[in-house]
């Protein structure tokens, strides 16, 4: 089979859920356990080490809060893109998806600025338990934001031509997941002091 022809298997839907949406949910499920394992490890350590609160007090809460706001806004754009795709308005969906990706870009810029300040103050990956978790968790999340943005731009390019509109919903789902992970990270890394 050539790479572009879709097998019959792809078009069937025994569960009533389209395969694309189903696989997105499974990907999200497997991601949840990855982040879940890391977060559970962090929380267990955090409870065992009250002294980490001192390290946590050096994080920039305003930057975290700003990023929360940015990600929530971009998720709204993803919802609107899904609506546009549902009404078969590919170009509009593409526009909204690009706006969502822009949100991701701003998020990463804020993150980069924040990390620069942290590193200037001497807090790096190996500075202590809290900082190791801080950079690992936020870094892994940042990678997911980056990957989401790239996929989103690819989906947007197709959507602009009114192709593969079902993918708009899938990448939106994924983006909401990335958003929700951040909503867990923000209080755990920034607010708990």
């Amino acid at each position: 089979m050539s790479a572009s022809a879709k097998p019959i298997a792809n078009a069937r839907s025994g569960t009533g859920i389209p395969s694309a949406r189903l696989i997105t949910w499974w990907v999200i499920a497997s991601e949840i356990v990855i982040f879940g394992g890391l977060l559970a490890s962090y929380i267990m350590h955090r409870v065992a080490h009250p002294e980490w609160a001192e390290s946590a007090s050096h994080t920039l809460t305003w930057a975290g809060a700003l990023n929360t706001f940015i990600l929530l806004t971009s998720s709204l754009c993803a919802v609107l893109a899904h609506q546009a795709a549902d009404s078969h308005d590919g170009p509009k969906a593409a526009k909204l998806l690009r706006l969502t990706a822009l949100g991701g870009l701003i998020f990463l810029c804020v993150k980069g600025y924040e990390w620069t300040l942290d590193i200037r103050e001497g807090f790096v990956l190996s500075s202590g338990g809290f900082w190791s978790f801080y950079y690992t968790l936020a870094g892994l999340h940042g990678l997911h934001v980056l990957a989401g943005m790239i996929i989103m731009l690819i989906v947007a390019a197709d959507a602009a031509k009114n192709e593969e509109l079902q993918r708009v919903e899938c990448i939106g789902l994924y983006w909401h997941f990335v958003d929700i992970v951040w909503i867990f990270l923000f209080p755990l890394l920034y607010i708990a002091k």
Binding site: M1, P7, N10, S19
Partner: peptide, 8 residues
């Protein structure tokens, strides 16, 4: 069926 749902 003829293949996996997502061959690629």
């Amino acid at each position: 069926c003829d293949d996996m749902a997502f061959p690629r």
